[in-house]
Design a binder for these strands. Structure first.
Lengths: 202, 202
DNA sequence: CCCAGAGTTGGGCAACCGTCCCAGACGCTT
DNA sequence: AAGCGTCTGGGACGGTTGCCCAACTCTGGG
């Protein structure tokens, strides 16, 4: 076998775990299955990771980072808040349908972390990252369209995450892409109603 | 040990599975753990259920039915659509905080069913029940307040499910009840914007 | 040229998994 | 009292799990 630095092996195993969970679900993500996917012997796993949980932590952080990065480039400012939110959500949705596994992995890890004390902090940081990213998105749209929000940005950010999370899960179950896009459009309109033009009057 | 008819045993095992999943997560729901929780010998499991999946199917249907029943009584009509939706969502939220396990079990089962071909239909029916119940809620509120909706009820129903699902998951992670209630209130206002008073003009 | 340290590897461990068998105990009919 | 179907419950099955060990091979620096 090609000799590879441990850091690189870790990356390979994380990628393999991503594939396995995405295609066969969380329950199938055993150390043996992951190693087989990575083309590595089982012993390589515990040479690179102290435990399976350590792999999950790294997988969560890498996947969340990928989502956050994708979203940083995905904020689209248009002529109005309504159009901006519609475009931004449509852009986000394109990334979901392009790689559903990312969402499968993310929701699976969240569910798993809920009852694993050693991973509870990971799930919390995961959602903090969601909320921070959503807040950034709203602030970009707000300043880009010259509006302010009638509710605290943190609250609207949580609502944005609620919407994306909820739409994704329903879609993972019934794969009704038209319904998902329609819901996102309607939510874009609804959230746009919480914006007012920021005419400085002094 | 007390002799118990098989039907009753099934009920006990389903209830025990509910408790175990709620408190220790889906991964802990082994046949042995479930039987221990129910105070039954392991062999009783396969005397009552052909397989573990059969138990999961029954657990899903029973839990969804409990949710649907609770929601049937939880539609509150107030003076305006906005207030009605706020009250109804607040009522729903009270049941969530009163028994978080119901949501833990439901989200866990959904996640599990996503990659278990034999359970895929169960998850789909689960969400169909959600959507049907939400549509009923919206129609009750609509006729109760004398309004019609500016979007198809099916679409608004999906949006309602998205909201409750999303709020629940975020809350399961960070347990921020205030944020959850604030988000639900804001969504109630947003959804109320899709109603128009149904003055018959002929 | 050698050797210390990094990386690879097969085999094996104890624990646990879902499922099954079967001898026995119970309670209802006749 | 006898018989029979329903339920009990211990024990065991083959298989899988996460993890570990000891022996190996490679590679770069002195």
């Amino acid at each position: 076998m090609a000799r590879v630095p441990a850091i690189e092996r870790r990356r390979q195993l994380v990628e393999a775990a991503f594939q396995v969970i995405g295609e066969e679900g969380f329950a199938a993500a055993t150390t043996r299955r992951i190693c087989a996917e990575a083309g590595a012997p089982v012993a390589a796993f515990h040479y690179c990771f102290a435990s399976k949980e350590e792999l999950f932590v790294e997988l969560t952080e890498a996947t969340v980072a990928a989502l956050v990065d994708a979203q940083a480039d995905g904020v689209l400012v248009r002529g109005s808040v309504r159009e901006s939110l519609r475009a931004t959500l449509a852009e986000y949705w394109a990334t979901v349908e392009a790689d559903p596994n990312r969402e499968v992995v993310l929701t699976g890890l969240t569910q798993f972390a809920l009852h694993e004390p050693s991973l509870a902090g990971v799930a919390r940081r995961q959602y903090e990252a969601y909320h921070r990213t959503a807040a950034l998105t709203l602030e970009s749209v707000g300043s880009g369209c010259g509006v302010t929000w009638t509710l605290p940005v943190e609250q609207l950010a949580r609502m944005l995450v609620v919407v994306t999370d909820g739409v994704v899960i329903a879609w993972l179950v019934d794969r009704d892409g038209d319904a998902a896009r329609a819901a996102l459009d309607a939510f874009a309109d609804a959230l746009a109603a919480f914006a007012v033009s920021a005419v400085s009057h002094r």
